[in-house]
């Protein structure tokens, strides 16, 4: 399926994440390629979201979290003591499961990020807002009500607003944590189309419970499972086509054919 050469954007080396004494994921080593969509699938509780959130250090917000192993973003370890966490989060954005627009206007929602990095000029901000909303396929629906609250939009529109907010600071990677699971089928379809489009500009990692969705949107798929010690581990990682047509592991086959999970 891939003909162009692959550039490695993120690489995890034996990544384990602990919440207190509980090991949430164990020894995950995976490569995520630039301008590709990588899907993370697996049964509930297998640590997909934990893995995703460790890629921009959002797990730091959970008290007593500890990380072993490495997460390399362009070959620099994002957990190195000298690494600035704000810089990581600017380069690696995230879209959450439930749309979470801020309690402010549509314009301010999108301008929130750029303003954090010192962009104050109204004309520049307006340009970024328009560009980001176009990028998130929301511009035509909201261009006449940019001063209205982001909370007044529908669920699908709110989620695209959150995507616009994320791309407004031009990240390199976008993490998506089940971005369509709270949406209806039509809104889901629009998000999936958007993901395919965003792939041209960004590297995307998406957690999904929906295997058809993984098959539709992703180029690569990582299948996680929960071990006997309740820690999540990586079972198989490959091109999506291969995972869904010719998986190497029996467990993967059982999962994608719906025999467990």
């Amino acid at each position: 399926m891939q003909t162009q050469t692959l550039t490695r954007k993120i690489e995890t080396e034996n990544l384990s994440v602990f919440y207190g004494s509980f090991k949430a994921i164990s020894d995950v080593s995976v490569e995520i390629y630039e301008n590709n969509v990588t899907a993370l699938i697996g049964p509930s509780g297998c640590g997909k979201s934990t893995f995703l959130r460790s890629l921009n250090r959002l797990n730091d917000l959970v008290p007593k979290t500890a990380v072993a192993g490495k997460v390399l973003l362009d070959d620099t370890d994002i957990y190195a003591p000298s690494q600035d966490v704000v810089d990581i989060r600017r380069r690696v954005g995230i879209v959450f499961q439930r749309p979470n627009p801020f309690p402010m206007s549509i314009f301010d929602n999108v301008a929130y990020g750029p303003r954090l990095y010192g962009i104050k000029k109204k004309s520049v901000l307006a340009e970024i807002v328009e560009e980001s909303l176009r990028g998130a396929a929301l511009w035509d629906e909201v261009k006449d009500k940019l001063d209205k609250s982001g909370l007044a939009l529908s669920g699908g529109q709110q989620q695209r607003l959150c995507i616009a907010r994320t791309i407004a600071i031009e990240p390199e990677v976008i993490l998506m944590d089940e971005p369509a699971s709270a949406l209806d089928p039509i809104a889901t379809l629009r998000i999936e189309e958007l993901i395919r489009k965003l792939r041209e500009r960004f590297t995307i990692v998406i957690v999904t419970h929906n295997m058809q969705q993984a098959a539709r949107v992703s180029d690569y798929t990582a299948f996680f499972n929960m071990g006997d010690d309740r820690a999540g581990y990586l079972v198989e990682f490959d091109e999506t086509d291969r995972i869904f047509t010719n998986p190497q592991q029996k467990l993967t086959e059982e999962y994608i054919t719906g025999r467990f999970g």
């Binding site: 959002l58 810089d87 989060r89 995230i94 801020f102 929130y112 990020g113 990095y117």
Partner: peptide, 29 residues
């Protein structure tokens, strides 16, 4: 206030104090 609202702001690289004033406080106002 949903924890992901706060996380959303911090994930954009916002400092904690700005998240508190601009996002969390208005949500709970």
């Amino acid at each position: 206030v949903p924890p992901d609202l706060r996380a959303g702001s911090l994930a954009l690289g916002a400092p904690e104090w700005k998240t508190a004033i601009k996002v969390v406080l208005p949500a709970a106002a």
